[in-house]
Design a protein around this nucleic acid. Sequence first.
RNA 1: GGUCCAGUAGCUCAGCUGGAUAGAGCAACAGCCUUCUAAGCUGUGGGUCCCAGGUUCGAAUCCUGGCUGGAUCACCA
Length: 596
Amino acid sequence: MIEKTIAEKAAEAVSALYRANIAAEDFQIEKTNPEFEGDYTLVVFPLARFSKKPPPDTAKEMGEYLVGHMDELSGFSVVKGFLNLSVIESYWVDLFLNIIQEENYGFAKEIEKQPFVIEYSSPNTNKPLHLGHIRNNLLGYSIAEIMKANGKNVVKINLINDRGIHICKSMLAWQKWGEGETPESSGLKGDHLIGKYYVLFDQMHKTEIKEMVHRGFTEKDAINEAPLMQAAREMLRKWENADADVLDIWRLMNSWVYEGFDETYKRLGVDFDKTNYESQTYLQGKEIVEEGLEKGVLYKKPDGSVWIDLTDEGLDQKLLLRSDGTSVYMTQDIGTAQRRWDEFHPEKLLYVVGNEQIYHFDVLKKVLKKLGRDWAGIVYHLSYGMVELPHGRMKSREGTVVDADDLMDEMFETARKTTEELGKTGDFSEEEKKSLFQMISLGALKYYILKVDPRKNMLFNPEESIDFNGNTGPFIQYTYARIQSVLRKSEKGTADLTQHLEKSSIQITSGEKQLIQMINGFPQIVAQAGENYSPALIANYCFDLVKEYNHYYQSTPILKRVEPEVAGFRLVLSHFTGKIIKKSMRLLGIDVPGRM
RNA sequence: GGUCCAGUAGCUCAGCUGGAUAGAGCAACAGCCUUCUAAGCUGUGGGUCCCAGGUUCGAAUCCUGGCUGGAUCACCA
């Protein structure tokens, strides 16, 4: 707000001093580096052309003009071409008093009507969720929260891949060797049980391949012609022909998986407004392909397969229908995109999908455009990086996947151990303890994953596990809990205190000014996180805020040994800082405890 | 080979719509609990911002070329 005034006055100054016209938006005004005196810095190098004087002289003249024409400025200093401006103290107090009156500070006041669709999670039903899925789920959920805070009418969709050769593999293995095993009889979570048979299929398949290669088959032929693989394909054919027995097994096994997924989702704290199943959508898109053929946008090869030529767009030719007329992934995605457009007419269709599918979404957008869908521009692939382990990528076949449920269990144990060693939960009930450990362990995990830029690959080192000190979720949670503790110790409620704050009686320290400035930056960060679809910006902001507060807390008495009015202001400041921490963490899907 | 993404401290990451002496956390070392929670705070050491050019008053940031790593280019999803 004041930056804008400075810029306007600066434009005025340039016009008055140097008879040049520069738009207010073209001035560079930044927060002054902490090592220099001042609050805002005007970069004057670019003005030297107009003043025809060295930058320091220009800065001095500008500084004199600005301080002379703005009541909010108390003084200035010049370092080379940088004009550092100091703002009067009461400005910050006023600013803070206004901010705390605002309802739902930093968030949009109302929600727009047009939907904003986010697809995320989208698991396969043949194995349990792993660390890679966790990143996807946390990102999807957090981005949804951030977009809501930016006033978007968010619709979260999970598109479950419940059909295809992969699930047939699990089904086949279970049918052959499962002996009727169920989640109840085995004590295994449904998704883990199905995963077990998927692995078993793979093992047996490999054994067959080995034998066949021994008998003289090539590796490639062996993979495709192994009896197990043929049986799996046969099963898929039966499924597509609605074979009653196959469908029964399919429904049964999928129901186990869903129960398992639901449990994991619930524990992770993610949810969806809609769940779609590929078994119900995989046939969609065919009509659109037919339409494209009629229009001449697509072409048919002699064998009957349908293609689109994207070489003029810098891409290749892409298959849209197999020679037997069945659809592929792309066909399906064309169909679901169309359906979502028809249903929602959304502002955006955001797909949270890993960066290995960049090419796929490039093609999808271009195909839609070629097919005359002028809304193709709403499709946005939010591609996030891989989660790597110290040894490299996770590979399910090599058993190096980090299982989502196991990871959360381990984190819970670590949280329990650490907390009990610190001995702070002596008077907690069992219920309270459990909920606290859950909160801390998930806070650690979620923060660890969300603090890094979504687009980048990230490294997860299970050996070092996840720390609870430093730039971590628990560190932030701890700071929040400390604030709550202070608030509990004051006799007066903060609502009451807020009412009775008197501007004139408030003198602020430099630490308090810093905090107010950071709080003042919150709305901008929320907006920026929304523009960039980046929870990492929220995480980093929150960490900085918490660091600043901890420094303040350590050096400044809030309740003790201070005048009641001073204590009142400090309490309100602490309380409000706590509120921002809570809101930021909520945007990341992380809860904060009242005590820890 | 084509396309896309990344390369910053020993490690994990910020900073990237150009601005001052490049920042955090972890790890190492040295301090701080007789004041509100020490899961905290303070300090020290640690850098060829992959390399080479270019644009600019000014480049980690923008452009070009190269090097390294990753992803992708299926009648898979």
